[in-house]
């Protein structure tokens, strides 16, 4: 079964595109053929929660509740140093491997 990662931001345009691009590049490098990365509007997140293939949420905004899947704060993709971006990508890869 495929594994879905949603990348949420307020507008679903420039900001989430940057995070989506960084994650997709790393996913390809790791050779995860079954992982889909999709950018969505924060407002649409509820619609994805029931999906059985959802494995992770990456959000550009702080999230003040918990979900059944791991949640990562994606701001380092936009403003982090290369080292901070890599640390976040490492954590995401670890979480994918655990699924």
């Amino acid at each position: 079964m495929s594994k879905l990662i949603v990348v949420a931001c307020g507008a679903g345009i420039n900001t989430s595109t940057i995070a989506e691009d960084s994650i997709k590049e790393r996913v390809a490098k790791e050779g995860f053929a079954d992982v889909e990365v999709k950018r969505i509007l924060m407002a649409d997140i509820e619609g994805y929660l029931a999906r059985t293939d959802l494995i992770m949420i990456v959000s550009m905004m702080k999230i003040f509740r918990t979900y059944d899947v791991p949640v990562f704060q994606g701001m380092p993709f936009l403003i982090g140093s290369q080292a901070e971006k890599d640390v976040l990508l490492d954590k995401i890869v670890e979480a994918i491997k655990k699924v």
Partner: peptide
């Protein structure tokens, strides 16, 4: 202010901006 018609079309500019914002 990035007025963007299509984020995929501007992906390289978005990447370059994210590199700049982190330095």
């Amino acid at each position: 202010m990035l007025a963007n018609r299509d984020p995929q079309e501007q992906i390289q500019t978005l990447r370059n901006l994210a590199v700049l914002f982190g330095q």
